[in-house]
């Protein structure tokens, strides 16, 4: 189901009408802000959403209603996701929610005074992952690869396509999908996106626990994870590497300096670091660092 279908009217109808306009058919995001017009974001431009020709602003009550509809009026079932500031809709569409956190004993129990919603559309792109996989294989053999980019540069989309390609090649791939974005769960345990014939999805598992479970019980050739965030994620990946499992992962970083500043000691686990950029299009590879080259540079410096 398209991301817009989850919204209530009048926004749903306005966006569905827009989708027929070719220019707006591949929008990246829709942002609602309290007492401001709704804005549509593409990679290169943004325009207000017109409803009957008028850029209507959204009230706080309407934002509450939109969030209620998006989470099926069941915050208790999504509170773990909301603690990270977003929920994922079936199909992998991510909804970021801006508001005041209401905490109890140090844990966020609910989000009040909602002042903004950011609906990011997930899309399956077929092709670039295959090209990149083949290129990386020629460079590093059957190695582990880390995709790095700033937000909205296509990390998850490329990772998903690589998983699909490898899964169809006969590799046993396990996706540890903490945020349900890679598989875009479609309800009842079914992935929303095609991830290949030999792929299993650990949906909503925290990365470190999911990787451990995958290694112990699912006998994977490859583990795929999105957005590594802290040391425990890298520790889990190290454990998987020691167990002889290849890892495909993504991380937020703009350039090699960013990456090595934070994760310098952990980067040796990856045979290739792939930097992606949003320009000219999301998913563009700006640089590939292979471990062999990094080691050679290190030796020269040494």
């Amino acid at each position: 189901m398209h991301a817009w279908q989850y919204l209530p009217n009048p926004w749903r109808q306005a966006l569905l009408d827009l989708a027929r306009d070719k220019r707006c058919s591949d929008l990246e995001e829709v942002r609602f802000r309290v007492d401001r017009p709704v804005y549509l974001y593409h990679s290169g431009w943004s325009v207000p959403l017109l409803i009957d020709g008028v850029a209507l602003s959204t009230s706080a009550v309407e934002l509450d209603r939109i969030v209620g509809v998006l989470i099926d009026h069941s915050l208790y079932a999504r509170v773990n996701e909301l603690r990270q500031g977003f929920v994922t809709l079936p199909g992998g569409h991510r909804v970021g929610i801006v508001g005041r956190a209401v905490s109890h004993h140090g844990q966020v129990e609910t989000i009040g005074r909602i002042s903004g919603i950011n609906l990011r559309v997930a899309r399956a792109v077929v092709g670039p992952g295959e090209v990149l996989t083949e290129h990386l294989t020629s460079l590093t053999g059957r190695g582990s690869w880390l995709l790095a980019s700033p937000p909205r540069a296509g990390k998850t989309t490329i990772l998903r396509d690589m998983v699909r390609f490898l899964g169809n090649q006969g590799w046993r791939v396990v996706v540890v999908d903490e945020r349900s974005e890679i598989a875009g769960y479609g309800g009842a345990g079914v992935p929303g996106f095609d991830l290949g014939l030999h792929t299993d999805v650990l949906d909503a598992w925290p990365k470190s626990e999911g990787i451990e479970v995958a290694v112990r019980t699912l006998g994977p050739d490859i583990i795929a994870v999105d957005e590594l965030g802290d040391a425990s994620d890298f520790d889990a990946i190290a454990a998987a590497r020691y167990a002889g499992v290849r890892v495909l992962a993504t991380v937020h970083a703009t350039n090699p300096d960013d990456l090595s500043m934070t994760w310098h000691k952990s980067l040796g686990m990856f045979d290739a670091l792939v930097y992606l950029t949003a320009h000219p299009n999301p998913g563009t590879v700006s640089r590939i660092d292979c471990r062999k080259e990094r080691l050679a540079v290190g030796e020269m410096r040494g």
Binding site: G68, H73, L75, Y76, V79, H104, T110
Partner: peptide
Amino acid sequence: GLGVSGVNFQ
């Protein structure tokens, strides 16, 4: 109050 908080408050 239905559906607008975490499990404990529900």
